[in-house]
Design a protein around this nucleic acid. Structure first.
Lengths: 177, 177
DNA sequence: CAAACCATGTAAGCTGTTACATGATTTC
DNA sequence: GAAATCATGTAACAGCTTACATGGTTTG
């Protein structure tokens, strides 16, 4: 899957500019793209070309004019089709595991130091995710069911970090025996 | 991180040909690259150019000749440096969560069907990982500590799928209330 | 006799990243 | 007066994927 449907989804929530989308990608955990201009503005043009969105130029005083993109009925249809399509498998890209695979060359201290740095990083991420969930503003809550779905999404991410943290703590604990 | 250090790591285990590496990538869960020729053969040439590996052409009767790559001391040093470097954060790329985010437009049956398909896929993956771990052959066991590290790596992957499975089951359960 | 395996390589293309470019306005 | 925000866009390049190309050998 490319960023296309992620953007289409956001537009199905509310009309947005490229700049709006960029900010959402930057702070979103599930929409894992970096939110770089290149991809966003190009994809928006592609959505226009494919008739999945329209745009409207808004001239403003004192701030630069912006292009507000709105999903079309064709776009909404394409989104629904995609939502119904067979889910892709999650991808766990854990470079740290590749590092660990060749870590037997380290001495005890070096290895524990490496493990401890990873534990720390994961812990920070977990706290950040929990803080995000606690504030939990930027999510659509058009129905109770939608609110529930977004809660579950947030919980999924938190549980992934918790799982990782449990794992690394256990590795360190058993390492010391 | 690119595939470079993953290959360097494998070469630190034992000298290999591009074809050997390809097969390892194909069946490996932690080394998440697809194992396509393009990347592997190009990276091997790059390792040669950088003096991190050497190769030796082995002419064989009846099968095509092959190039056996061996890590150099410079390569081993570069690998150790990388292993000691600050770990990257894990990346969880779960397209399914993006799908779920816009799934409130589905009716009850469609949504449960979607969830159930995901549960199934995850379950299959979990069983495959457990089977791989049970067979557990293709891993270096040069010391007991190395064997332990590889066990922990395998457990990490399994726990990730278990966590995902628990999550999706819980979502489905609470959905029905 | 077809399919899979051994073995190396190239071409084309998609996805994604960082950095560059511009310029007004608001906040510190 | 510097830095951040609003706002759109381009250039260059890294990383990765699928498919193509070749050709002998082994297995079913």
């Amino acid at each position: 899957m490319s960023i296309k449907y992620a953007i289409l989804g956001l537009l199905s929530w509310r009309p947005s500019t490229g700049y709006d989308l960029k900010k959402i990608f930057e702070e979103s955990s599930i929409m894992y793209w970096s939110g770089n201009n290149n991809q966003i503005y190009k994809t928006l043009i592609q959505l226009l070309d494919d008739g999945l969105a329209t745009n409207e130029v808004l001239h403003q005083e004192s701030t630069p004019s912006k292009k507000l993109y709105t999903i079309t009925s064709k776009g909404a249809k394409a989104l629904k089709e995609w939502v119904l399509s067979t889910p892709e498998l999650p991808e766990f890209k854990k470079t740290f595991l590749v590092q660990l695979a060749w870590a037997d060359q380290l001495d005890e201290k070096e290895l524990d130091d490496l493990l401890s740095r990873y534990e720390n990083e994961i812990n920070i991420q977990l706290l950040m995710q929990q803080e995000k969930a606690r504030r939990g503003i930027n999510s659509p809550k058009r129905t109770t069911r939608e609110a529930y779905l977004w809660d579950m999404i947030s919980e999924n991410i938190i549980s992934s970090y918790k799982n990782e943290l449990d794992w690394i703590r256990n590795v360190r604990k058993e390492m010391k025996i």
